[in-house]
Design a protein around this nucleic acid. Sequence first.
DNA 1: ACCTGAACACCGTTCAAGT
DNA 2: ACCTGAACACCGTTCAAGT
Lengths: 240, 240
Amino acid sequence: MPGSPAWWASRPPAPSAGRRGRPPVDVGRIVETALKLVDEVGVQALTLRMLADTLDSGTATLYRHFAGKDELLAYVVDRILGEVRVSPESLDGLAWREAVEVGAQAFYDTLRRHPNALPLLVAQVPVGPNGLANRERILRLLHGFGFPVALAARAFTAIGHYVVGFAIQQHGPGAPGPGDQPHLLDYYRSLDPNTYPATTAAADDLTNVPLQEEFRCGLRLLLDGLEQARQAGEPDASAG
Amino acid sequence: MPGSPAWWASRPPAPSAGRRGRPPVDVGRIVETALKLVDEVGVQALTLRMLADTLDSGTATLYRHFAGKDELLAYVVDRILGEVRVSPESLDGLAWREAVEVGAQAFYDTLRRHPNALPLLVAQVPVGPNGLANRERILRLLHGFGFPVALAARAFTAIGHYVVGFAIQQHGPGAPGPGDQPHLLDYYRSLDPNTYPATTAAADDLTNVPLQEEFRCGLRLLLDGLEQARQAGEPDASAG
DNA sequence: ACCTGAACACCGTTCAAGT
DNA sequence: ACCTGAACACCGTTCAAGT
């Protein structure tokens, strides 16, 4: 089912109203609660039993709204992508690079709010409504600034990869938290300088860089390359 | 344990020789077999029972060599990173961009050989011996071409993100295989052109691009940006 | 001293029995 | 007609009992 986008359109029947005074168990509340639990305990620790208990329900009930855990998690991903909000007015008068930076920053900020959910965002192409809407917005922006269709598509992919890749390495589960940061630095420094001279020399730069700065620095590198390709006027100007 | 690099140095005692005619169950053979199974059935489907059966052993035996499944999988990751081999002679006389392209291509080719293992490479900073060696090699190369230490570190991170991000979206589990490709294209085309004009217009470019070409195109965008930063002479030339 | 069968406390998923 | 308790076939991990 995941990997195929068709399932997104075929939703189960509308949920019934809640009874016995409990709030109704509808798709929206399940997804909202699942995201809250993922934020709290992580993707790996989330179980359907835990989710059902939090909803004052049973695991079997969840299967009346979703085909399985994977489908539920796909809805959680789209729920997160819905948080990426950039008001059109805030982009007025900006050059394409600045506008894309605002969008990438908003995406990055959203991902930072849900670090435990990051593993969910890497394994699939998001085909939910919010994922589609975000992509549509960026593609239109780039077209408006003269990007050929093919280059705009590649730019979107490259920028998306960069943001998610950066976020997961810096904030994903397993990434060193503020408390572990010195340990990772110590680890790099403890390596034999004769065997790893470049790594030990760059130890500080591999661990101690302010995140916001490093995020923008790498993003600008990517945008610099895109600007060159745009000016060249065709997507494959630098190839062959 | 994952996320902290210290465990890598503390290995369990050397394994005993095999008995009863079976091949010995040592760390190397466990990791090799685990990688083979991951390649065949995927990360999600790999179970310790399956691994133990393949090794003609029991699950409890695995815990004499690894602290748990996570640690075993970290060894599998480093085993994969050991496949990235670039002979120093093949880089002779190349400009830094060409040399980095060769390295990134070798990394990408290795990942393509193990598409089912890709989810393992995104959630952690590889601190195993092969991961360290690869990073050391690239950092030294960049230093040799005049990259300041900080810029070289960021370049390595950015390029690594790009390669893994590209590979997982194109080849990871859940990504559309050759058989699903037309379905994804049809899905994009089936969207309402009034709601998603840019997405439907770019449908072909989002699904039908030759992979090798798209990989190099995006990589070159990144390298273009890095070249500008290098010429500017300092890592934060474009910032503030 | 080293190995491991069998158990433990779970997990996602299903379905027959309830209301 | 809709919901769900209880079961099913697993999972990663542990430890007492074997050699």
